[in-house]
């Protein structure tokens, strides 16, 4: 009896180990698949055209990084494009966070007529496919004289339903007492928002900032339509034009890709916690 009990125990332990090995291999294969394209990108950026097209695969980096870089900057004004992307994304983020927080505050901390109807109709607009309005949108931008300017990438999205929804969720946890106390002290409604509610919603502001910045940074169709001169291109537009060139220079393209995603990856490493939190809040409370 004792022996078989012992045997059962060892069996259970071996079974546990096998299970763990299987689980971890699955997870690790996933990580490898995730990282390989990025490592490949760094590898290719250092290789010459001939090295990239040779059919022998090797893991050794080449020595042509600077040559690839020279080819890149002779083709597209990539640093100017990087500046444009940073400018558009930063401006869009600041304005979006301000107006979405304001809207979130309105929905979260006030009771007013038609509140629920307005809130749900706002949420419903999130389901409208963006393609439905792209052609008239383009005609309008033309009509406004906004072609080849940054406005179309910034203004239309600064008070978007996702952002307002997210901020409403975060602000729901702010107690009413704080706001009432401020009101008694003679604070105006807007002042309460700016001095009390906004500073108390830091984690929401963080999450929304990162998500807005990413969304703006990765936008393609709109800037592709609007930004015509190469000095106005954003990074994704520059990359697309690079890919369109006949006989694309892959090494140079990879240098451009590194310039395009390095800032994002750095921002991600710094802010990954608040991004995850933001998305998870948005998904579960929705």
């Amino acid at each position: 009896m004792n022996y078989s009990k012992e045997e059962l125990r060892t069996r259970k332990i071996t079974f546990d180990i096998i299970k763990k090995v299987l689980l971890y291999s699955f997870l690790i294969i996933g990580v490898v698949i995730t990282f390989v394209p990025f490592l490949y990108m760094f590898l290719l950026a250092t290789r010459s055209r001939a090295e990239i097209f040779s059919s022998i695969f090797s893991l050794m980096p080449g020595q042509s990084f600077m040559d690839n870089y020279e080819v890149l900057i002779s083709n597209v004004p990539i640093w100017r494009n990087l500046f444009n992307s940073i400018f558009i994304s930063t401006t869009a983020t600041i304005l979006t966070v301000f107006f979405c927080s304001l809207g979130g505050y309105g929905f979260s901390k006030y009771n007013f007529k038609f509140k629920n109807k307005l809130f749900f109709s706002m949420l419903a607009t999130m389901m409208i496919p963006g393609l439905l309005s792209i052609i008239p949108w383009f005609i309008m931008m033309n009509f406004f004289g906004w072609m080849d300017t940054f406005y179309p990438m910034i203004i239309p999205g600064i008070a978007n339903p996702f952002g307002i929804f997210l901020m409403t969720q975060f602000m729901n946890s702010i107690p009413y007492d704080v706001i009432d106390a401020a009101r008694i002290d003679g604070c105006g409604e807007f002042e309460i928002f700016l001095r009390i509610v906004l500073p108390m919603s830091k984690s929401g502001v963080g999450a929304l900032s990162v998500l807005t910045f990413l969304g703006s940074w990765n936008l393609l169709m709109q800037p592709l339509l609007i930004l015509q001169s190469s000095d106005m291109w954003t990074i994704p537009v520059a990359l697309t034009k690079l890919a369109d060139q006949a006989g694309i220079d892959h090494g140079a393209a990879m240098v451009a890709v590194i310039i395009a995603i390095a800032p994002i990856i750095i921002a991600y490493v710094i802010g990954s916690k608040s991004i995850m939190k933001g998305i998870m809040e948005g998904a579960t409370k929705g």
């Binding site: 394209p37 990025f38 490949y40 990108m41 940074w217 990765n218 393609l220 990074i235 994704p236 990359l239 697309t240 690079l242 890919a243 393209a253 990879m254 451009a256 890709v257 395009a260 995603i261 994002i264």
Partner: peptide
């Protein structure tokens, strides 16, 4: 960015 990844 989707564009960057598509190039890779």
């Amino acid at each position: 960015s989707a564009v960057a990844i598509a190039l890779i």
